[in-house]
Design a protein around this nucleic acid. Structure first.
Lengths: 344, 344
DNA sequence: CTTAGCACTCACTCATCCTGAGTGCTAACA
DNA sequence: TGTTAGCACTCAGGATGAGTGAGTGCTAAG
C-alpha cells in the first residue's frame, strides 16, 4: 500500500467517516462545506479523482459522490484510525455488567454477545472457549430412575455435556457412584485415543461400565471431529437497521451467513490462532459470500489451553472506531474468565 | 363462530389454500377456473361478498381479490383442515435423525429446531424442559487450580449449570470431593427455600462450604425467578423468503419479536399448561406485536415434572397443514426424551 | 337461487420529464 | 506548479400521467 500525502489522507479520512456516518456518497462540496480545509471544491475534486484512480474510492455512478472501496476502508483502519479504547465510563459499565453475574461461562457468552451488539451496533458472535483436543476431566452418573441415569461429563476446558443413559439392568445411585469412581480412576484425564487404548480398554468391566466408556469415547471423538463450535449470536436487529439493507435480498445474505455456520467456522478457525483484533473487510477476496460485509474478530482465552472467538459482523460501512475497541475490550474480559478457570 | 353452508366452507377453504400457496389475493375467476365448482364467477362473487361481510375474508383494495382474515384462518384451522399427520416416510426420516444422536438434551433441542424450520418452512423455536420449581439433585466440585474450582450443579429436571468458584484458601481435589459429598448429604433434593432453611442453614460449615451453599441458593432462586428460558431458534431464513417481507420493516418486526424474548416468554408461559398443539393466529387480539404473524406451538415433556415448548413462527399466511403436524410430531419426540429421563 | 352483462375501481407498469447534486476539463491565476 | 473559477455534462430519483387488466357490485333475466 503506497503512501498518500497528508492532504490525501485527510480527505480519505473525511470520506470514510462521513460515509460511515451518513451512508450517503460524499461529494467535494460536502467536504469543503462541512470540514472547510481552506481548499476549493475543485482542488478536492482533483484529490478525489486521484484517490479513485488509486483504488481507495469508488463512484456508484458517474455523477455521484465517492464512497470508500474495501481498500479505502483498509487504509483507514490500519493507518488513519487512532487506536482508541472505549471511554473509561463505558468500560466501567461493561465490566460491571460482567461482574454482576457469577463466573458462569454460558452467562458470560450471552452477555458478551449482547454487549458487543449494543456497543458496536452490529450483529455479534461469540464461541465458547475450547481446548484444541478434548480431554475428560471427570464423569459422574446420576440416577434418574431404575433404568435411566444421567451421564455428566466435565472436560478439561471447563465444558460440560450431559447424556441420558439407558441402564441394561436396574441400578441404584450407590452402584452408579461406584461406577463413576471406578471409571474416573481408569480414564484419568484421557483424550479420545487414550480412552480407546488406555487402561479402560483392557480392564475387566461390567456391561454398564463398558457402555459408558464407549459413550465417553464417542463424545470425545465428536468434540474433536466437529470443530463445529456453538456460535452465540445477537444483535441481528442492528444490521437490519442499516440503510444498505433496504432491499431484503441483501439482508437475506447476512442471515444466510449467520445461519449456515460453515463459512463462519472457517474464518473463526483462522482467527483463533491470530494475535489481537482481526479486521476482515469485504471478505478480503477470499470469502466471496461476505464481500459486502466486514468482520471484526478477536481470539480470547489461554493459548494452548482453551480459546474461542468474539466479534461482530456488519456491512463494510461499519463503525470500526467503535467496533474494534469494543471487541478488544470484551475479548479481554472473556480471557480473564478463562484465566480464572486455569488459575492464572 | 356461526355455521357456514358447505358451499361457503368450500369456497373459504379454496381461498385460504390458494392464498397460502400463492400469496396473491384470490378472485372469483381464479376459483372457477382452477377448481370448477359448477358455478359461475358471479355466484362465487356473491358467496365471497357474504364471507367478507361475515368477516372471514378481506380485500386489500376495492378492485382486488380476497385474502383470508384472521377469523378466516381460524375457521380454516379449526373446522376445515382435516387433521393430518406427516407422511409416514417423513416421520421415519425425522425419527431417524433424532436417534442418530445420543439422548442428549442440547442436541435434541438443536435438532428439533432444525427439523421444524425445515418441515414447516418457518422460523422455529424450542425451549428446554424445565421443572416448575428448581430442585438441586447433585453437586460436584472439580479442581481447576489451587485456587479455583468448577462447581457443577445437576438439577431435578436434568438441566445443568457450571460456575467457577474462587477458593478462599488453596484446596485440592480430595478436599473438594469431601465438600461435595458433605453438601450433597445436607442439601438432598432441596429447592431454594429448603437450602436457605434446611439442615445446611444450621449445620456447622467451613467458609468454603458456606460459600457454595450460598451459590446454590442463589442459582436456584435465579432459576425460579426468571422464567426466562433459553430459546433455541432456527430457520429465520425461511420467513425471509416469504413475499410479505419484501419490505424490510415488516421483517424487522419478526427479528424484534425473536430477539426481544419478553413477548415470546409470555406466550410460551401460557402454552406450557395447554394440551396439544396451540395455534395463535395474528396475536388473537392479545399480543399486538405479532398481529401479522402466527405461532404454532406445543408443550412437551412430563406434566408436573418438566416441560418445555416447541413451535414455529411465521406470517399468518402460514402452511398450517404442514406446521401443525410437524409441531405435533416433534413435540411427541421431545416428550419421549423427557419421559426417558424420568424412566417412564 | 343462479347467472350474464356491464359499468366501475384501482393497483401496477411504463414512459417521460425535470431537478439537482456532483463530476471532469480547460483556462486563468498566484 | 499547484490552485481555482467557470462551464458543459451526467445521471439517479421523484413526479406526473396514460394505459392495462384483474376484479368487483349491481341489475335484470333465466
Amino acid at each position: 500500500m503506497e503512501q498518500l500525502t497528508s492532504r490525501q489522507e485527510e480527505i480519505l479520512g473525511i470520506v470514510v467517516r462521513e460515509y460511515i456516518a451518513s451512508a450517503v456518497p460524499v461529494g467535494s462540496q460536502t467536504i469543503v462545506r462541512r470540514y472547510g480545509l481552506g481548499l476549493s471544491p475543485a482542488t478536492v475534486r482533483n484529490e478525489l479523482a486521484f484517490l479513485e484512480r488509486e483504488g481507495y474510492l469508488l463512484q456508484t455512478h458517474a455523477s455521484a459522490g465517492r464512497i470508500p472501496s474495501d481498500k479505502g476502508y483498509r487504509y483507514f483502519v490500519h493507518r488513519l484510525m487512532q487506536e482508541t479504547e472505549l471511554s473509561p465510563s463505558e468500560q466501567r459499565m461493561i465490566s460491571h455488567q460482567f461482574h454482576q453475574v457469577q463466573l458462569e461461562l454460558q452467562q458470560w457468552m450471552k452477555l458478551a454477545a449482547a454487549v458487543l451488539a449494543q456497543t458496536a451496533r452490529s450483529a455479534s458472535l461469540v464461541t465458547a472457549p475450547k481446548a484444541p483436543q478434548a480431554r475428560l476431566k471427570h464423569l459422574e452418573m446420576i440416577s434418574l430412575s431404575d433404568v435411566t441415569a444421567l451421564l455428566v461429563m466435565v472436560f478439561q476446558d471447563g465444558s460440560i455435556r450431559q447424556q441420558v443413559v439407558l441402564l441394561p439392568t436396574p441400578t441404584g445411585q450407590d452402584e452408579l457412584t461406584k461406577v463413576s469412581n471406578h471409571l474416573n480412576e481408569l480414564l484419568g484425564s484421557a483424550n479420545a485415543a487414550e480412552v480407546r487404548t488406555g487402561p479402560a480398554a483392557t480392564a475387566p468391566l461390567t456391561a454398564l461400565e463398558r457402555h459408558v466408556v464407549e459413550r465417553v469415547a464417542e463424545t470425545l471423538e465428536q468434540m474433536d471431529r466437529r470443530s463445529e463450535r456453538e456460535i452465540h449470536r445477537d444483535g441481528l436487529i442492528h444490521v437490519l437497521r442499516q440503510p444498505e439493507f433496504a432491499q431484503v435480498d441483501k439482508f437475506r445474505q447476512v442471515v444466510e451467513v449467520l445461519e449456515r455456520r460453515s463459512l463462519l467456522e472457517s474464518i473463526i478457525a483462522e482467527v483463533l490462532w491470530a494475535n489481537g483484533v482481526q479486521v476482515i473487510i469485504g471478505g478480503e477476496g477470499r470469502w466471496d459470500d461476505i464481500e459486502d460485509y466486514s468482520l471484526v474478530l478477536s481470539p480470547y482465552g489461554v493459548r494452548g489451553e482453551a480459546n474461542g472467538v468474539v466479534g461482530v459482523l456488519g456491512p463494510t460501512r461499519m463503525p470500526y472506531d467503535r467496533a474494534i475497541p469494543a471487541v478488544r475490550f470484551v475479548a479481554r474480559l472473556m480471557s480473564s474468565l478463562v484465566e480464572h478457570m486455569y488459575g492464572y
